[in-house]
């Protein structure tokens, strides 16, 4: 298409960077969605069960748009450029056979080391406090991220960002209110949410750490300068923690690696759950 900035991406390296970037965003949404979906039928009250699954469905929607875009990028690549992109045999067989890929192939046929999601989103639900803390850190980041991505030179990412920003603004409102309720609630709820925000703190640094892909996309005006979001993110969460009478964690050491495929064991279990059916009955539809 004339005027589409995707066609202006000069070389294979940039194409791969855009693909990885798109996949990384898709994987975050997909894994987060799966974690929140695990609450379905187990919510503490019916109304919050519905709230969680609503948010989970928003995330699924974001993941689908992003996986569809990633699949299109792959389908437009010459076979030679995509033979060694993934480690999964089933996926590579499809690519080698010249088959067009779709969103499901990318969600269900990539193994953990090809997943580029944040370590934060794969952390287990544990209890209500951990679930809220994980959502809060992530939502506060994604709100700033999608705001930035609205200025992307890539029309597709820009469009997805505009739609998703409305969704994540609500997600953040929901998780912020829960942080305040639990923090400024009973002694027990205060202690539980403080423990959860402390324990998950070490996974927040990765959100702002720029991989080579992130840097290439930011320089090209396609992606967001993640490091530049940190100050606003910190101010925003500080503000909520103050209202919640919670202490901002002070640990400096941060765990990263998810964006480059180095995951904790948790992701393996999630993918086993998600991918079992497609791997056992390839192409099964319903």
């Amino acid at each position: 298409m004339e005027g589409n900035p995707n066609n202006e991406i000069p070389n294979t390296k940039m194409k791969n960077a855009l693909l990885n970037y798109t996949l990384s965003l898709a994987d975050n949404a997909s894994v987060m969605s799966h974690r929140l979906g695990e609450w379905c039928g187990h919510g503490p009250v019916l109304e919050q069960d519905i709230a969680l699954t609503n948010i989970s469905l928003d995330d699924i929607g974001q993941a689908r748009s992003l996986y569809q875009y990633a699949a299109e990028q792959l389908n437009n690549m010459p076979t030679t450029e995509k033979t060694n992109l993934f480690s999964d045999m089933m996926l590579n067989a499809k690519i080698a056979a010249g088959e067009n890929l779709d969103e499901d192939d990318l969600a269900y046929l990539r193994d953990a080391w090809d997943y580029r999601s944040l370590l934060l989103v794969e952390q287990p639900n544990k209890d209500w406090a951990y679930t809220i803390a994980r959502s809060f850190y992530y939502d506060a980041f994604m709100q700033l991220f999608y705001k930035g991505l609205q200025n992307s030179k890539d029309d597709r990412l820009k469009g997805i960002a505009e739609k998703s920003l409305k969704e994540v603004t609500y997600h953040l409102r929901w998780s912020s209110e829960w942080i305040i309720r639990l923090g400024d609630g009973t002694d027990e709820s205060h202690q539980k949410i403080q423990t959860a925000i402390n324990d998950l703190w070490m996974y927040t640094g990765e959100m702002f750490k720029m991989t080579d892909t992130d840097k290439a996309m930011a320089v090209a005006g396609i992606g967001v300068d993640l490091a530049g979001l940190h100050k606003d993110w910190l101010n925003n969460i500080k503000n909520i923690f103050t209202q919640a009478t919670l202490q901002l964690p002070t640990d400096i050491w941060m765990q990263d690696g998810g964006k480059e495929g180095h995951h904790s064991e948790h992701l393996g279990y999630i993918l086993a759950d998600m991918q079992f059916l497609q791997r056992t009955y390839p192409g099964l539809d319903w």
């Binding site: 019916l46 709230a51 609500y170």
Partner: peptide, 20 residues
């Protein structure tokens, strides 16, 4: 109708339960 701790949560729960 629905359960909620206060008005703010009631509106959010209503949004999630009745305007999906």
């Amino acid at each position: 109708s629905l359960h909620a701790a206060d008005a703010a949560m009631a509106i959010e729960n209503a949004r999630d339960t009745y305007t999906r």
